[in-house]
Amino acid sequence: MPFTIATWNINSVRLREALVQRLMAEEAPDILCLQECKSPVEKIPTEGFAELGYRHMVARGQKGYNGVAILSKLPLEEVGAHDFVDLGHARHVAARLGNGVTIHNFYVPAGGDIPDREANVKFGQKLDYVTAMRDWAHGEKPEKAILVGDLNIAPREDDVWNHKQLLKIVSHTPIEVEHLGAAQEAGAWVDVTRKDIPEGQLYSWWSYRSPDWDAADKGRRLDHIWATPDIANAGYGSRVLRAARGWEQPSDHAPVFATFDL
């Protein structure tokens, strides 16, 4: 049975509850992974989601910050969460579907504005977090797994609007790209989005600072869907729902989709 998974940094699930419901009603992914929920788990507005068929949820929450949730039409079994580098942040949660596929939902730290760990503690935390993801994948050797989320790094030159101008901008610096590549290699993760869309500029985030974001199109691909090699070839139909960035009071991220026939 094929299923469709979507990942979306919602930037407050309570503030944008209506947008989540719109996505559920119009696009109807079987599984929706949210990041930056900014809500304790008990205050996530699940009632309206359940009415739209999303009766299953695993989540980790925090008041006002971070937070990840997996909402699903399909039954889920929670299989834990990691607090990488002991930040005390709700940035990861995992669940297993009935077909044995494990879904990991991540929200990697943004890293602040200065790409220097000596001058900026947040940048160091980001690099350490991604290194911990690498070490976890080395140790766990995931199989039959999908990793999604806002990884806050745009790795390829065509994942940003201007490679040269962004080389010193947090999210596209060489050291971040190197760290993300090491984490990806450690789990032998396949970038499903780029497997399906191998060429061309592709973005999932546009800054709120740009009043005419659509025309300016200064985007970055920060949101990812990866899969382990044993199931990556079952993934297809990848897309970014760019239109959602233009919805009323939107998140600055757009949802990313992929379908798996498993």
Score class of each variant (00 low, 15 high):
Met1Pro: 08
Met1Ala: 15
Ile5Ala: 00
Ile10Ser: 00
Val13Glu: 00
Leu15Arg: 15
Arg16Trp: 03
Gln21Thr: 05
Arg22Asn: 00
Ala25Trp: 06
Asp30Asn: 05
Asp30Met: 08
Cys33His: 08
Cys33Lys: 04
Glu36Gln: 05
Glu36Ser: 01
Cys37Arg: 02
Cys37Glu: 05
Val41Trp: 01
Ile44Thr: 01
Pro45Arg: 04
Thr46Met: 12
Thr46Val: 15
Thr46Lys: 08
Gly53Ala: 03
Gly53Asp: 07
Tyr54Met: 07
Tyr54Lys: 03
Arg55Ala: 08
Met57Ala: 11
Ala59Glu: 03
Ala69Arg: 10
Ala69Tyr: 13
Ser72Ala: 09
Lys73Leu: 02
Leu74Glu: 10
Ala81Trp: 13
Ala81Pro: 12
Asp83Gly: 09
Phe84Lys: 14
Gly88Phe: 11
Val93Met: 06
Val93Thr: 14
Gly98Val: 05
Phe106Val: 01
Pro109Val: 01
Gly112Met: 08
Pro115Tyr: 02
Asp116Gly: 03
Glu118Tyr: 09
Glu118His: 10
Ala119Gly: 09
Ala119Lys: 15
Asn120Met: 05
Gly124Tyr: 03
Gly124Leu: 05
Gln125Met: 10
Asp128His: 07
Asp128Phe: 01
Val130Met: 07
Arg134Asn: 02
Trp136Tyr: 12
Glu140Pro: 01
Lys144His: 12
Ala145His: 06
Ile146Gly: 03
Val148Arg: 08
Val148Ala: 10
Gly149Thr: 14
Asp150Leu: 11
Pro155Asn: 02
Arg156Trp: 04
Glu157Ser: 07
Val160Tyr: 06
Gln165Met: 15
Lys168Pro: 00
Lys168Thr: 11
Ile169Pro: 00
Ser171Trp: 10
Glu176Lys: 04
Val177Pro: 04
His179Asn: 08
Gly181Asn: 14
Glu185Thr: 09
Ala186Gln: 06
Gly187Ser: 02
Val190Gln: 06
Arg194Val: 12
Lys195Asn: 05
Gly200Gln: 07
Gln201Pro: 09
Ser204Leu: 09
Trp205Ser: 00
Trp206His: 08
Ser207His: 08
Arg209Tyr: 10
Pro211Ala: 11
Asp212Lys: 15
Ala216Pro: 04
Lys218Asn: 14
Arg221Met: 08
Asp223Thr: 10
Ile225Ala: 04
Asp230Ser: 09
Ala232Arg: 11
Gly235Leu: 10
Gln249Tyr: 07
Pro250Ala: 08
Pro250Leu: 09
Ser251Thr: 08
Asp252Glu: 03
His253Asn: 00
Ala254Ser: 14
Thr259Val: 00
